[in-house]
Structures are given as structure tokens and as C-alpha cells.
């Protein structure tokens, strides 16, 4: 349940989901950091495409968001 124009990052934050991916080397949980598309920390998988910045991507109906490196709940 999200609003038109809301970013994936904001929608996840609204759900209380702070972690959006697992780091590749040590498997640490990571979340949004800069919120403006620069730090690349918020990368998620959207409709099967990896490395999409959650903070810059508006949600759309039926969009499937998966945490990078983790199986996450579908979101749409």
C-alpha cells in the first residue's frame, strides 16, 4: 500500500523496513543512507533487475521489490 510518487525507499521506511540489502562480502545489513541517489547503499532488486536505487525509484502497481542478496516480501 503506497502513494503515487512515493519512492521505494520511503515505502519500505513506512513499513518499518530499515534494511534493504545484504553486503556482498560480509553479509551485513545495509539501509538507506544519503536519500538522494549518490551513495548507492539503497540498492534493491526491482522486477528482477538488480542494483536499482530505492531512494530514487517511484513505486508502481504490481512492482516486485526484493532486497538485494536476500529473499524479501514482494511489494506493490
Amino acid at each position: 500500500m503506497a502513494y503515487q510518487g512515493e519512492t521505494v525507499g520511503a515505502a519500505l521506511a513506512a513499513l518499518g523496513q530499515r534494511a534493504v540489502r545484504l553486503s556482498e562480502k560480509y553479509g551485513d545489513l545495509r539501509g538507506l543512507f544519503c536519500g538522494m541517489g549518490v551513495c548507492q547503499e539503497c540498492r534493491v532488486s526491482v522486477d528482477g533487475v538488480p542494483n536499482v536505487r530505492a531512494c530514487m525509484t517511484p513505486v508502481s502497481p504490481g512492482m516486485r521489490v526484493e532486497l538485494l542478496g536476500v529473499e524479501g516480501p514482494p511489494h506493490g
Binding site: 521506511a13 530499515r18 538522494m36 551513495c39
Partner: peptide, 29 residues
């Protein structure tokens, strides 16, 4: 940013990033 133990934990954000979420996305992280 500055680095310190735990700075990569989810929930540690830049102040500006927090402001963006609150002001223009109307969400409290």
C-alpha cells in the same frame, strides 16, 4: 559523513537523507 563504529547499520543516515524522507516523502524513518 564521518566514519565510526556502527555507521553502516541500517537506521544510520545522513541528516539530509532523513530530511528528504520527512519533508518530501512524508515518512518517518
Amino acid at each position: 559523513g564521518i566514519g565510526f563504529p556502527g555507521w553502516t547499520l541500517p537506521g544510520v543516515m545522513s541528516a539530509g537523507g532523513i530530511q528528504l524522507l520527512v519533508k518530501s516523502q512524508r515518512v518517518l524513518p
